[in-house]
Design a protein around this nucleic acid. Sequence first.
DNA 1: TTGAAAGCGCTACCAT
DNA 2: ATGGTAGCGCTTTCAA
Lengths: 363, 363
Amino acid sequence: MIYCISILLEEDRMTKRTSMKDIARDLNVSIVTVSKALRNQKDISQATRQRVLDRAAELNYMPNLAAQTLATQRSYIIGFVVPDLMISFFAEISKGVSERLAPLGYHVVIAHSQEDPEIEKQEIERLLARQIDGLLIASAQSRPDADLFQSLETRHVPYVLVDRALPGLRSNYVGVKDEGIGELATEHLVEQGCRRIAHIRGPALPTGAGRLKGYRGVLRRHGMEFSAKYVVNGQSGKHTGNLAMRELLKLDPPPDGVFCYNDAVAAGALMAILEAGLRIPDDVAVIGAANVHYSDVLRVPLSTIDQSSVLIGQKAADLLVRLIDAKTEPAPERILIPPRLVVRESSRRKFGVSQGVPVGVFV
Amino acid sequence: MIYCISILLEEDRMTKRTSMKDIARDLNVSIVTVSKALRNQKDISQATRQRVLDRAAELNYMPNLAAQTLATQRSYIIGFVVPDLMISFFAEISKGVSERLAPLGYHVVIAHSQEDPEIEKQEIERLLARQIDGLLIASAQSRPDADLFQSLETRHVPYVLVDRALPGLRSNYVGVKDEGIGELATEHLVEQGCRRIAHIRGPALPTGAGRLKGYRGVLRRHGMEFSAKYVVNGQSGKHTGNLAMRELLKLDPPPDGVFCYNDAVAAGALMAILEAGLRIPDDVAVIGAANVHYSDVLRVPLSTIDQSSVLIGQKAADLLVRLIDAKTEPAPERILIPPRLVVRESSRRKFGVSQGVPVGVFV
DNA sequence: TTGAAAGCGCTACCAT
DNA sequence: ATGGTAGCGCTTTCAA
């Protein structure tokens, strides 16, 4: 019988994590004392604290975060809702987020919305059940789901919109002004001598709409006529970008420059142009957006608008932590990172362009 | 005074999530009854269950997962340790993982090791404190840290190694046989008529070592001499791949074919070859590994060995769930996904190659 | 400086 | 079919 018990205890010791109770028992102090010592509270004698710390180290003690969460209402988990991690832009943001959050003791749970507002909502609900301390959202919604955001406000769950703002929602946001992206890209094509500039537009989200708006604005400013025919929908992937470009090339006259919603779309467009036997950038100049990590090694090295993806993640994480730590809810902050033109071969018709990378240098 | 209390209650209702206690109070039943009803236990009358369910829906009740975790010792969180999510291969795996786990109610916490075994260890410890149910590890260790894996075994935390096996560790694993990748790639280059085949090898990890071994084996089988000069270290990124290729091109004679550790390395190598004024594949044929999503739109569409990244993630997730649900610890399982040759322009010298994609078709 | 008691929200066990 | 009690491992409050 005693044998059995000792076996059980042994098994127990082997299987279960050591808890404060173990340390307390070993040291003949109370659990409270252990708790305080471990958290460096000052109403513990130096001697006791050291004994606790030593024993904790010996037993390789790690706090049970579920228990801590329950007791403190603070989980040190933040949720990050992305459309799809296979879109490199979001993977890059996610890296920036983790970089900043991990050292602070946070864990990041990534949830995929698959570009579906309904799934997004469910995933957010699921995250809330997890008692997350805050939320980062790259939303798939074209306009904010009132219920959802109401409930976030009500529960005082801090959240930051990332990359994709939501029209009419006064909230914390980190991203790049999409209109600026559209302007910078289109302006560049004009400067390179393009006269029939097409746009492969993205999804019906603020990002797509903003870039389109910037594109139209620049055309107008240059007295170039806007033609709806020159704007086609390319969604956000290389395949759809490829199809969209094929359509554009059927036009008469075909465009001599095209601004693509993002780099993936542009990658597909490049292929379509080459397959049609046209030259890039001489016949058609191409520019994308995002400057994802592989954009310089594409079929033709791609000009693009850099969006500082990793930085977006870092800034969003920093802001979220500020919100979480704030005693009183601060006014919503909008952090806009300036878009930056990156000129590569796909659009470089004239030399001496200031932002151009010298030929032959592989970055 | 009564006013104050009502305010407080109101505030409470607004701020705090509804708990089982609220439902129980409203319905004049016990918390236990609510708990059972919500979990569909059968010792609850149909009528009561319905009342509970209805009220729960009205109050938009969501269980507190931290409390549930504490009570059941089951967190429905799994950890996924990756070197870097910016490596598309891991982002793709991660997608496969989430796809399978989200519908089962799991959350996935992604932790970055940054290719540093020490950080990896710390991150795993941190995850264990989180009471994760299981662990997926794409390890940065060249050999298993005894302490770490001992402690995983001791605590009975199920884990699955992903992509990167660990030598001498008999554990669950999902990946592609690296030697097979090396063989398939090298064999293909031989078949395309390459006679001086170089290898830009990866990090000193099982993946790098296995691919190298496969490469050497094929050379031997074809009676081609192995020369250490033709094997250079390219780590795992496009930049290092670029530098490595430049070194190879300085050799006399330079290689006429090169098998690169992965697609990113190959992307850099492609650039180096073109910058040197050589033609691909005529002067130098190139093949990578992974078949990441952008490999077909690279500088030259890249031949590669497909590793079914998303599938790896799915299989790993499925296996992990099986381990978590198992009553008794099953024998370690090794799931090997067959590598698949994907021929594209970067290596297609001869036509009629069976695996070749017809010219002009953009996939 | 220390610790007893209560509680976080849930589940398991065992009566009734 | 229902529920009281006792935890899960931690923190908070307050008394000693």
